[in-house]
Design a binder for these strands. Structure first.
Lengths: 340, 340
DNA sequence: GGCTTGTGAGAAAGCGGTTTCAGACGGATG
DNA sequence: CATCCGTCTGAAACCGCTTTCTCACAAGCC
């Protein structure tokens, strides 16, 4: 059972290369990694042998010997949300530039399995990037206690000993509230994201702070998908709101679809605002007013933080990236200004 | 330099656990893997020690010793295309059910780097799933020659010694052509996908076979994104086509957006058909007539094929999954039937 | 009671690399 | 010409885990 590669061509090892080139395995390693000077003629023989045998170093063996896997792990809640691929692309690019592979796992929006997945990632990656995790605080504490490089993306938890980076969700929602207040809206509804989500809590915090603008808010439970937006949208009518804010663009678009079906015109009868500015260019039915998260920068910077953490071991202050407001076609002044 | 975990808690090894439990490392291994009978009292001591020390086996060492990494690799061209997350979810689920992790790489639609990425995956995964690769045939041959478990998804290449599974793109496009012919369309334009794509070639093959339905086709170069659909749509007018077929739904939606801007009504002036049936429910502006690929099944079955290939070493016939036609709101009879 | 059998645990040998260590060799120096 | 020193190479140790091999021990049998 030792060799499970039944019938397969035997694995080419570094010693095979050495033998073929007439040198020791150590020399092959040195040539391939450039860790020490080697006689050019030997190096040439090694390279020839590598090419002829089609040798590729075994990543597990390298990982074991070097004490590094050359891999970072990323956990995202749901790949189907266009938000994450954008982040992932940036992370992936940075990782590659540092010669690392990326391992992706998805919790399918189920916080209860996230801890297990992260533990699994830790067993096989040099560092882990945890994206907008909804994991319970206690689990998070347990994970950071493992003392394995870990960066939190889009979740800032006070008292957690892990570097964190996030878009400034609070600020983003404040921008939205300011915009709505300026248009004359006073009653606003919010289609809330996942309850346990920090990112959602930040948005709510801003909505409450927006009372200072004379805005009152009704919070409706919803979710993070276009379907949940579609379903929850029917509840908005009962709130008397003239503007609808949402957890993200998908929810907003789902809500707009439902509104149309209900005969509510957007933005004439109801202003709708998204969040995230996911680029569904030429696809979505509505040009949403929304706030944008610099997803590329977020991913890039998170990956760099993780890299720094892995190599230098230092971690900096939590980073919060500013958001930008994009006023498009889904917001307008309320038809009748509702003042008390 | 040996120990790069500067300042970090020292790694807990299996021997540490053994020492703490008063048994040998071998016994710990046996307990954890259940590979042999162990005295229950010893096993209990081991479990206690594991818990207290927070021991997690090192994946690289396990991989090396077992000759297996417990990981499969997936290469996709572009995560931003909603097609792939769906496949990925299914693959991921199957992999987990077999106790394997999933490593994802993305080529960002650049076929020239795909070979390198796959080689990298092969160094660190037990098997590789290659999704609709646009890689050149020669590169593909070189890869299969490496004799590493490899399954091709959405690309069937005659003469390649790798199992393959795909949606029946040819059949799907034939369904579309039949539908259009039945509506009375005679001149059809096609916004072509990536030139080097097999999946695209299959669609074109079907379009040509559709001459039997009395349909003539004009092929316009385009791409696979909504943006490329938007850009290429302007060319359609010059072809005299009454119906537009596309490489995928994103392209179709982009084209519809442009058509609207150009004052062309869909479907009254022009029928538009998508491909893939990506679920942009409540988000997209148009309810597209399209053909659906059973993406979940595709991913599931591909992962199972790979699993079989890795464990049993056998590979079956190329599988082709049938597609289904969904007639929605973007197709209608042509205003003036163009007959010669 | 002595011997065979069976059982479970430890020692040790890999897995395939990297890196230390020590030695061979060649050139420079006194 | 002998000695010293610096370079480059190979041998060997090691990374952490699995698995074979070996052995001690207890039970079963004549």
């Amino acid at each position: 059972m030792r060799n499970v590669r039944q019938g397969r061509a035997p694995r080419v090892t570094i010693s095979d290369v050495g033998a073929a080139a007439g040198v020791s395995a150590a020399t092959v390693s040195r040539v391939l990694n450039g860790t020490a000077k080697v006689d050019p003629s030997l190096a040439a023989r090694v390279h020839d042998a590598v090419r002829q045998l089609g040798y590729r170093p075994n990543a597990a063996a390298q990982g074991l010997a070097r004490g590094e896997w050359g891999t970072i792990g990323v956990l995202v809640p749901n790949l189907a949300n266009p938000y994450f691929p954008d982040v992932l692309k940036a992370v992936s690019a940075v990782a590659h530039s540092h010669g690392r592979r990326v391992m992706v796992m998805e919790s399918d929006d189920d916080p209860s399995i996230e801890q297990g997945l992260v533990e699994d990632l830790m067993r096989s990656c040099d560092g882990v990037l945890l994206c907008s995790s909804r994991m319970e605080r206690a689990d998070l504490v347990a994970l950071t206690a493992r003392d394995h490089p870990l960066v939190l993306l889009d979740r800032i938890v006070p008292g957690i000993a892990a570097p964190a980076i996030s878009a400034d969700f609070f600020g983003g929602m404040m921008l939205i509230c300011g915009h709505l207040a300026q248009l004359g809206h006073r009653r606003v509804a919010y289609l809330s994201g996942p309850e346990v989500s920090w990112a959602n809590a930040e948005r709510i915090r801003a909505l409450e702070a927006a009372k200072a603008f004379g805005i009152s808010v009704t919070i409706l439970p919803c979710g993070s998908t276009s379907r949940s937006g579609y379903e929850a949208a029917a509840e908005v009518a009962g709130t008397g709101a003239t503007a609808l804010t949402t957890y993200n663009d998908l929810v907003a678009l789902g809500a707009v679809t439902r509104m149309r079906e209900l005969g509510v015109r957007v933005p004439e009868d109801l202003s709708v605002v998204g969040f995230d500015d996911i680029a569904l260019e030429h696809v979505a039915h509505t040009s949403l007013t929304t706030v944008s998260v610099p997803r590329g920068q977020l991913g890039r910077q998170a990956a760099e933080m993780l890299e720094a953490l892995m190599t230098e071991g230092h971690d900096g202050e939590p980073v919060s990236l500013p958001m930008e407001l994009h006023v498009r076609d889904s917001t307008a002044p309320p038809r009748v200004t509702v003042d008390k």
